[in-house]
Simulated scan of single mutants.
Amino acid sequence: MPHRPLSPGRAIARHIRFLFWLLACGLSLAACNGGGDAQESGAVARDAMHGDLFIAPAGALCARRERDGNCVQPTSSSTDALALHKAMTNPGPDAPMINFDSPGYLIEGLRTKDSQGNPSMINPSMINPSFGLVWRHIQAGRNGFVVDGRRYGNAKDNPSDAMVNYTGEQGGGAVLMFNLEGGQNQAWFFIFGEHDLVSPRGTAGWGTALGLLTDQTDAPTTRKVTYLGRYRSFSGTAERLDENGSTDSLDIRVTYEAELDLHTGSLSGVRIDYTDPGTQRHTRLKLPDLTFKHSRLEGLSKTQRFDIEIDGPAHIDAPGEDKRPEAPRPDTPRIRHDFTIEALEGEIFGKQAARIHLMGAGPKGTFLVALVRKDLFELMENNPVIHYPLTPAKP
């Protein structure tokens, strides 16, 4: 996803991008019209407003409070992304605090080092990482955050910047990413995460997508909603393989189409068996159909397990591609990763179910699917295009 040039927090951004690229994956999608089957719109609207696919509306922003005095988590009819950004970054001592409960990636391991033994800024990943999913309680407001009791403040950048960095009172830090210009698009969202937390394995980072859960007031009126989006996975140990900087890490990106059925709450799965002609990386997996309830992935779907098989040329200065001319070259090491996704989470964000996020993890790897409603692509910057055709899991 494109951002404006970053302020001095750029060094910190590079230090933690091993985590945030999982969420800020820069969808490469086509400008299209349409978005679903318009039949039975009246019946579908009634079902969506009174059924359990979407969450009940929370009411106007901060009109309702939790027992702790904070605002209840807003939904899509409570406010819009720009107004929410203004509320969260208001530095006033009397500004509201807003509660969120969000699932996110947890990555733990030893920070990679450069040739002088310092934490690497060029290859900011972790050695022998452990991947997982964790829910955390976030209190956002007064241009700061409290995450499971850990306080972050002292913002290093102006809230109007695409990225704002915060310092932790007990160490570590936090980052909020949001593009004000892009925020005019219903599908835009916030990226938030913690980094450099002390953990038993060395250090840890956690990242999530913050947004306004789609509520019944803002439900689509079509029977089905069509999405285009990006599958992305990351796996490997970040161990050096050769003197060129190759590491035992692979990240895979593939674009595909999916459909949400508003009668059943089911999101169509996909079967991927694809080799990227540029990177020469091969991906094989079958993501099953998944069911949502109250705008979040429903219980049984969260227990789905599936295998991912990927192989191809290793990264050079991962995360990224081999930057040498005519890469990948014959001498670029080839690696293979087979891992199982053991935990899934997912959320539907924005007005008219503008965006769906799926995230999953197992001990050896993690994956993200970010889907945007098909008719919104003409609003995305740079008029992006679809690169990779896929075969759906079912007709």
Rank of each mutant, 00 (worst) to 15 (best):
L6C: 06
A11F: 14
A11G: 14
A13F: 12
L23T: 09
L29G: 00
A31R: 02
N33Y: 13
G35W: 13
G36N: 05
S41Q: 09
S41K: 11
V44Q: 04
A45P: 06
H50P: 07
D52M: 12
D52Q: 15
F54C: 05
C62I: 12
C62K: 13
R67V: 12
N70L: 11
L82V: 02
K86T: 04
A87S: 11
N90A: 15
G92S: 10
G92M: 11
P93T: 06
P93M: 11
P93A: 15
I98H: 12
N99M: 11
Y105D: 10
L106E: 02
L110C: 02
K113M: 07
G117F: 09
N118S: 11
N118A: 10
S120T: 04
I122D: 00
I127R: 02
N128M: 11
P129I: 11
S130E: 13
W135S: 15
R136P: 02
R142K: 05
G144H: 04
F145I: 11
V147Q: 03
D148R: 03
D148Y: 04
R150D: 07
R151S: 08
Y152K: 09
A155T: 07
P159N: 07
D161H: 13
Y166A: 02
G168E: 15
Q170W: 02
G173K: 15
N179T: 10
L180Y: 04
E181T: 03
N185K: 11
W188A: 14
F189V: 14
F192E: 00
G193A: 05
A204R: 08
G205Y: 03
T208A: 14
D215Y: 00
A219M: 13
T222W: 04
R223T: 15
G229D: 12
S235T: 01
T237H: 01
D242R: 11
D242S: 10
N244S: 05
S246F: 04
T247Y: 00
S249W: 11
I252N: 00
V254N: 07
V254L: 09
T255E: 13
T255R: 07
Y256N: 13
E257V: 10
A258M: 06
A258F: 12
L260N: 04
S266F: 14
L267R: 01
S268L: 09
G269F: 12
V270M: 08
V270F: 04
R271S: 03
T275M: 08
T275V: 06
P277C: 10
P277N: 06
T283W: 00
R284P: 08
L287V: 10
P288T: 11
T291V: 14
T291K: 15
Q304A: 14
Q304V: 14
R305Q: 07
F306D: 08
F306R: 03
F306Q: 01
D307T: 06
E309C: 07
E309N: 09
D311N: 12
P313E: 06
P313V: 04
I316S: 07
D317H: 14
G320D: 08
E321G: 06
D322N: 01
D322A: 12
K323N: 15
P325T: 12
D331P: 02
P333G: 03
I335W: 15
H337S: 08
H337V: 01
E347I: 06
A353Y: 05
M359Q: 03
G360T: 08
K364A: 00
K364Y: 01
K364P: 02
G365N: 10
T366R: 02
T366Y: 00
L371K: 05
L376R: 12
E378M: 15
N383L: 14
P392K: 06
A393P: 02
K394I: 12
K394H: 13
P395V: 08
P395C: 06
